[in-house]
Amino acid sequence: MNVIWLILLSVGIVFAVFTGNLEPFTQAVFDGAKSAVEISLFLLGIVSVWLGITRILEDSGLIYRIAHVFRPVLSRLFRNIPDDHPSLTAITLNILANLFGLGNAATPLGIKAMQELDTLNKDKGTITFEMMIFIVLNTASIQLIPFSVIGILAAYGAHNPAEIVLPVLIATAISAVAALFILFTFRKILK
């Protein structure tokens, strides 16, 4: 990947020199770097707030009540996970982070969920069907309110950054249902 970036940067510099646009090229590089840092700090703030909220939810015990609300849906999807297993809490937190469009905050929660799911794995080093289901749900990332995207659009001055809520919800829900349908279909075929 580093080689690709080096090639792209080198080609850009060569074209800027030959077309006489070295000054605008240099300005664009610094503007892009500034913008990247600003967006990174903005996203870091969102992730920090969400991880703080998840810590409060865990410490207060509220996450177990939330997990209990999600349990009927999760028990249909994850049939081989015991009711009191910690993976359900991690899966619930991951799904909640994704529902609120906080994919960056969902990543450590997803890693924790996979680690917890691996404790149920009898054949270490292979993926279980529950792990596959979780990967599909995590990747599809159904988003009720995509806070990160709305925040980025607002930071860049979008007139109505929240107008993406319904299209994002529809697109992510359809992708999750389709992916789960394909996963369960292949499982039935290959069984």
Rank of each mutant, 00 (worst) to 15 (best):
L117I: 03
F15G: 05
P167T: 04
H159Y: 13
I174V: 11
A67L: 04
I39A: 07
N138V: 00
V177E: 09
V49F: 11
V14Q: 12
G32T: 06
P82Y: 09
P167Y: 06
H159M: 12
L8K: 08
T92C: 05
T92H: 03
Y156W: 14
E116T: 03
I66P: 00
P108Y: 07
I150W: 04
T26H: 09
P82G: 01
N21G: 14
L22M: 15
R65S: 13
E23A: 13
K188F: 13
T89R: 15
K191H: 14
I66L: 07
A179G: 02
A105Y: 02
S141Q: 04
F18P: 00
A171K: 12
L51R: 09
I145D: 06
S148Y: 01
R65P: 02
L102V: 03
G101N: 05
S87C: 10
T54S: 10
L22C: 10
L41M: 07
T107A: 05
T185G: 07
V136T: 11
G52W: 06
F18H: 12
L8H: 08
T19S: 14
N80E: 14
S75V: 08
V47C: 07
E163M: 14
L120Y: 02
A179L: 04
A97T: 06
F42Y: 15
I39E: 03
D123P: 01
N80D: 13
I46V: 09
A178R: 09
F25C: 02
F181Y: 14
I174S: 08
S10P: 01
I133A: 06
A105G: 08
L77R: 07
A36Y: 10
E163S: 14
I127H: 11
G52F: 07
Q115L: 12
A171Y: 07
L169F: 15
F181L: 15
L144I: 07
I152P: 00
V47P: 00
L62R: 11
F70Q: 05
I39R: 02
K122F: 06
T92L: 02
F184P: 00
I95S: 00
A176N: 09
T119Q: 15
L117M: 01
S60Q: 08
L44W: 14
N138S: 13
A173Y: 06
R71P: 06
I133G: 00
S40W: 13
L57Q: 03
A16H: 05
L102D: 00
I145P: 01
V69D: 08
V17A: 11
D118W: 01
G151N: 05
A28T: 10
I164E: 01
R65C: 09
I39L: 13
I182Q: 09
I182T: 08
V11N: 08
I95M: 07
F100P: 00
L183P: 00
V168S: 04
L93N: 06
L137Q: 04
S175Q: 09
N104C: 08
F30H: 09
V69I: 15
N21K: 15
T19L: 11
I189T: 04
W5F: 14
A162E: 11
T26P: 00
L190H: 12
E130L: 03
L96T: 01
T89D: 06
E23C: 10
D83V: 13
P24V: 01
V136D: 09
N80G: 08
H159G: 07
P86K: 09
V165W: 00
V3A: 11
A176V: 02
A176I: 03
Q27R: 15
A113T: 01
E58V: 14
K122H: 13
P161M: 04
D59R: 15
E38C: 02
F15N: 12
